[in-house]
Design a binder for these strands. Structure first.
Lengths: 337, 337
DNA sequence: AATCGAAATGTAAGCGCTTGCATATCACCA
DNA sequence: TGGTGATATGCAAGCGCTTACATTTCGATT
């Protein structure tokens, strides 16, 4: 492999017999260069396989056309989907997206924010609103526009997301309306995760409103097995809960599996609900009753908002993406007796 | 928000009363600066909230410590998982990962390669081996090390992946051993996707070996509904196939759903197999018989190999990650008669 | 043919950083 | 006290690019 050193603007200029300025213009403002010259230049670009150096360009033009997104993990389909549409919109606007993951760790998030700034991100997408003030200050001091997504947020900052609390509240009311009085919950880990904690809060608020007293909530990591295990634990209670509400669909499907293993019929013996409406939820049997959360729309809305923020156009402080309850088979009346 | 202009090395140097060189050394080779000075500098860095500019740094040092990965889509959990562990290993080695998606389009992949080069990637992770020669040449000319992952590849280039063809072949033999003679397949879209086409080839080779003649193969996009639809189409044949082998688990689970809707028992009336062993496969009922593909291990192995390649250390040209057949409930003997 | 203005191109400064080399500092020894 | 080598710091060039400004070119007009 006799590798060729990466050609520079200068190489192209020399090859085409013009100045670097002209080459630069060919690339960035072709209409300012006469056709014959442009063709000669482009030919040289092609021949040398020239690719402009991003660093040099960013340095000279003081623009990066780069947007960053810091998500907890790429493994969660929920984020993957939203980020995908986020990036599609950005890419149409000529921006490239840099994705980093924080592993649900605020410290790590802070680091990644540094990386993004360092790479000159024009704007940033973060998930949710629960984070140390320091992380946000860091951004504010630089005046870099940023956005919390997947949830609505506190009194300041911009958000595009769902009202997780209200959605959980509504779903719980629906469960109660079906006649359930003994409700338990498997929630996501709520530490520094406002999506998880809001969902728990919503369920609690509704059960309290109905005078059901304090319900039992087990927090579990994001995984089928974790849902199964938590479900098993909840089912040891005497008398057993008649409905188990889950903080997300993965936990719910795990719970369903465990119910089957325990010989419990769903919804005959126990009702189960989820949250997110991921693909599997329509596929399992019976179908999972859950909350539909339109991730694609959210990703798009977030991209549009961030683009406006970067352009210093006026925007609403929050955009709420509506959710909807999807009734399938896992929610039924409590068993008689 | 009275935003402060981003501080530069110069600002820090002035604030600390030293030269830019010293500040630079504090950041990159602290041991070469005396403690008292270093403390003063670090204080200034902290006070100003200085973050080094990546572009400037890359330009001056001719190093980026950046690795790129171009995957078909982030939405596919299969890639998400592998990439996640890929990046964990890289990050321990002090490299940052840039992820881009090609949307299964070679043209788009080519573009993204350009973006990666332009950002100074030290190495690149690509998926599979099926791509226009032009895409590869582009990389070769620059001497940028790259790797095909998720599959093994042709006579040249480096690969870390699975032998998709052999795995499909083995699974098919197992199906045939159970007594199936009428086998059909739902494959992924094979165009420019060697994982999909190798799996189809493997199944075909095994059925041919067993003298079962040409089997029917429907190619379907990656989605539950697509699997369901294809399954429906296959089931119109007379006589019906007794086993439907699927190119991935998503298609297989979609097929299972459709079978249920059609009133067919699995595996009583029809056996179904998948490929990948994603999370759901253990959760559906009956459990899906499939091929386990250890994505995390692959991601790690790929990262290690790429790091060596970048360091110009010797490496094996291919690393095969072993797969394993996972027998669960969806494969049984064909129905009697 | 001379003049003029617009269009095309060139010149060169500098973006923020690293680094080879020159210089300053200092502890130590003769 | 002067000299020495090691250590710490500064100076300044230059990485690849964009862009304000200067210069050249050229067609149109008089």
């Amino acid at each position: 492999m006799n590798e060729i050193a990466r050609p520079t603007l200068d190489d192209v200029a020399r090859a085409a017999g013009v100045s670097t300025a002209t080459v630069s213009r060919c690339l960035n403002a072709p209409e300012r260069v006469i056709t014959t010259t442009r063709e000669r230049v482009m030919q040289a670009v092609e021949a040398l396989g020239y690719t402009p150096d991003f660093g040099g360009r960013a340095l000279a033009s003081r623009r990066t056309n780069t947007v960053g997104a810091i998500i907890p993990t790429m493994e969660n389909a929920i984020f993957a989907r939203g980020v995908q549409s986020f990036q599609e919109v950005l890419s149409k606007a000529g921006k490239t997206l840099l994705v980093a993951s924080s592993g649900y760790d605020p410290e790590h998030e802070r680091e990644q924010i540094g990386v993004m700034i360092s790479r000159g991100a024009d704007g940033l997408l973060l998930i949710g609103s629960a984070r140390p003030q320091a992380n946000v200050d860091y951004l504010r001091r630089r005046g870099i526009p940023y956005l919390g997504a997947w949830n609505l947020g506190g009194p300041e900052g911009h958000f595009v997301g769902f009202n997780n609390r209200a959605a959980a509240f509504d779903l719980t009311r629906r469960v109660i309306a079906r006649g359930h009085r003994r409700i338990a919950m498997i929630g996501g880990i709520s530490y520094m995760n406002d999506r998880a904690s809001d969902r728990i809060d919503g369920v609690r608020a509704a059960t309290r409103e109905a005078g059901l007293g304090e319900i039992r909530v087990i927090e579990a990591p994001y995984g089928f097995d974790d849902g199964a295990e938590a479900f098993g634990a909840l089912m040891t209670a005497e008398p057993r809960p008649t409905a188990v509400m889950c903080g997300n669909d993965v936990l719910a499907v795990g719970a369903m599996r465990k119910a089957r293993e325990m010989g419990l019929r769903v919804p005959g013996d126990v009702s189960i609900t989820g949250f997110d409406d991921i693909d599997i939820s329509a596929v399992v049997d019976p179908g999972l009753t859950t909350v539909r959360v339109p991730h694609r729309r959210m990703g798009e809305a977030a991209a549009e908002m961030l683009l406006k923020l970067i352009d210093k156009q006026p925007v609403d402080r929050q955009i709420e993406i509506p959710t909807a309850i999807v009734e399938r088979g896992t929610l039924g009346p409590p068993p008689a007796g």
